[in-house]
């Protein structure tokens, strides 16, 4: 089973050097655990703490010995490399990513292997039915470990889309459960013709509630550019999309710097705004 990347810090060499150090947790992005407890802003931990980070998660701490630190620490270049790098010409890199799952290879790109943010309480994911037919015997499930028990949640579907719902995912036998207790989620595809399911992606779903103020603001913006020409509308949509994701991230401190999200689905569902 492919696991969500976990980074374990402190327990060895680092704790040896800084065993007496105290860390005040100033801010968190993503999900960080100290043993089995989720780390919260304002917590005080020491250097022997065993921390686990979901992919992309970050901690801002004030260390008694070193001042402000971001954990996990990034690899540090030597001052020689840093000085020489200053002499080299700077280059930029651009990247693109697909919006919907068209075939198997896009699963990993779509969910990544870190945090997948779901704006709102549910999202639908469109798949290619030729590769992933969905019916009574063939379906997707999200599997997780809760209190040492494996829970396998069959995901509802309609047509060529399956549904990830917060309510469905975080309830067992009709009772709500604490999602912070779950470290990883694995998306499986159950094929009616095969005995064992296929793991297609691992990620940590993070359900994000968007404030009414921001929704009202977005609604106003959408109304403003509905009158525009298709070319302008497309251009505005592209710019608008990124700025909305940034605004939502600013409202939600737990969102890590690196995440995938269902923004297109959310915009379409809430504002009838389609990516053209």
């Amino acid at each position: 089973m492919k696991k969500i990347s976990i980074i374990v810090l402190f327990v060895l060499a680092y704790s040896y050097l800084h065993a007496q150090d105290t860390y005040f947790i100033q801010n968190i992005k993503g999900i960080v655990k100290n043993g089995s407890n989720t780390v919260k802003k304002g917590d005080k931990i020491d250097a022997t703490s065993k921390l686990t980070f979901t992919k992309g998660a970050l901690l801002m701490v004030s260390s008694q010995k070193e001042g402000m630190k971001i954990l996990p620490a990034k690899p540090v270049s030597s001052e020689t490399a840093y000085t020489l790098a200053d002499l080299l010409p700077k280059t930029n890199r651009a990247s693109t990513r697909g919006n919907f799952i068209q075939n198997p290879k896009y699963f990993e790109n779509y969910f990544g292997d870190g945090v997948y943010c779901v704006f709102g309480d549910e999202t639908q994911v469109k798949v290619n039915l030729t590769d992933y037919p969905m019916n009574k015997d063939s379906y997707f499930s999200l599997r997780y470990d809760y209190n040492n028990e494996i829970v396998d949640k069959k995901l509802a579907f309609a047509g060529d889309q399956f549904v990830i719902s917060k309510k469905e995912l975080f309830s067992i036998k009709g009772k709500d459960i604490d999602s912070s207790e779950i470290a990883e989620f694995a998306l499986h595809y159950h094929s009616g013709t095969k005995k064992s399911p296929n793991l297609v992606a691992s990620f940590m779903p993070l359900f994000i509630s968007v404030s009414q103020e921001l929704k009202t603001e977005i609604g106003g913006m959408v109304a403003m550019f509905k009158e525009e020409t298709p070319e302008n509308r497309q251009k505005y949509f592209n710019d608008f999309r990124r700025s909305i994701a940034t605004r939502i991230a600013a409202e939600n401190a737990q969102m890590p710097d690196e995440y995938k999200e269902n923004l297109n689905y959310w915009l379409e569902k809430n504002f009838d705004l389609k990516a053209e």
Binding site: F24, K41, G42, S62, K65, E66, G67, M68, A73, V76
Partner: peptide
């Protein structure tokens, strides 16, 4: 890697 101790005033007064 071993930095001099530095912090933002915002952090120091954050109440943490």
């Amino acid at each position: 890697e071993e930095k001099y101790k530095m912090d933002n005033l915002e952090n120091i007064l954050s109440g943490v």
